[in-house]
């Protein structure tokens, strides 16, 4: 029982991070209809900038975190403006192919960098945050990251719901042509949504590195797990992405704990396959509406 609880908690703390990564993915998908394969690359990039600033640059952790977010924002903006902009009007498949190319570039850069012996994370957490309950224990890093994630989820939810930029973003998602007609600066909204998504990727990358000690190259592979997460939650639902992330995290942790570690790596994709076969809209996604002009 205690083993089960421990595994469950590990799964949830991993799943929250998957959810964090998936939010950026869903955001890009909803606003620009691009399946972002470069997601893992963006996560790795965030983690790398953070590591470089905090260990090579010897900056305090919080300061380098803020700088990383700014850097990720700039990179997201750059990708949208310099690459996505030129294929904005073509079919969704071209966007996916573009991000596959970007993913390969990111991957090669990080394989190249891995030859340079990156230092590990040196983050100090408040040990008071760690929870011990019988034999079940939650490390302080997980608790901190969990609190941080919930904070960002709430912040993001409020941003989408109330801020004027959030509202224009949602309107662009709903109907780009109508939004454009009503004076929404669609191009700017797209650029900002890529930038914000890249920021979420960076946060998820840093947190995954801290909690599960994933190396920077592994993050590129973990980035592919956003696909099962978003399919489980529904491809166009941000709330679904959060729940899907936690589900996939728990599923993976349970499989790793009870069956085998190598099968645990693949079980999210089995879930993806079954989900598309049985309930393709996901748990929270809306049914696809057939429109010829999309």
């Amino acid at each position: 029982m205690e083993f089960f609880l421990q595994v469950l908690i590990n799964g949830i703390s991993l799943g929250v991070l998957y959810a964090m990564a998936a939010i950026g993915f869903v955001m890009i998908y909803r606003t620009s209809l691009v399946l972002n394969f470069a997601h893992g690359g963006l996560m790795a990039m965030g983690a790398f900038i953070f590591l470089a600033l905090s260990s090579w640059g010897r900056l305090p952790n919080l300061f380098s975190f803020v700088l990383t977010l700014a850097g990720a924002f700039a990179i997201g903006l750059l990708i949208e403006k310099s690459f996505h902009r030129s294929i904005m009007e073509s079919k969704p498949i071209h966007g996916a192919i573009l991000t596959i190319g970007l993913a390969l570039i990111f991957k090669s850069i990080f394989t190249f960098l891995s030859g340079m012996n990156l230092p590990g994370y040196s983050a100090q957490f408040y040990e008071a945050l760690s929870v011990t309950w019988g034999t079940v224990s939650i490390p302080a890093s997980s608790v901190t990251v969990f609190i941080f994630s919930v904070f960002f989820f709430v912040l993001f939810g409020l941003f989408l719901k109330n801020s004027s930029l959030g509202i224009t973003m949602r309107s662009t998602t709903e109907n780009r042509a109508a939004a454009l007609a009503l004076g929404v600066p669609v191009k700017r909204v797209l650029a900002l949504s890529w930038a914000i998504a890249a920021m979420f990727c960076a946060i998820a990358g840093i947190a995954l590195g801290m909690v599960s000690n994933a190396s920077i190259q592994e993050l590129g592979f973990i980035g592919l797990k956003v696909f099962p997460v978003v399919v489980l939650g529904g491809l166009n639902s941000i709330g679904g992405a959060i729940l899907g992330g936690i589900l996939i995290g728990v599923l993976e942790a349970l499989t790793k704990g009870y069956i085998s570690a190598s099968f645990g790596e693949i079980v999210p994709y089995v879930a993806l396959f079954l989900m598309i076969a049985l309930k393709p809209g996901g748990f929270f996604g809306t049914a696809e509406i057939k429109r010829s002009w999309q």
Partner: peptide, 19 residues
């Protein structure tokens, strides 16, 4: 430096040609 350079070129050519 040579191990990842193939991927870099593939990615670069995909991005270049698709855009």
């Amino acid at each position: 430096a040579m191990i990842p350079i193939r991927e870099f070129f593939y990615g670069g050519f995909i991005v270049l040609f698709i855009t």
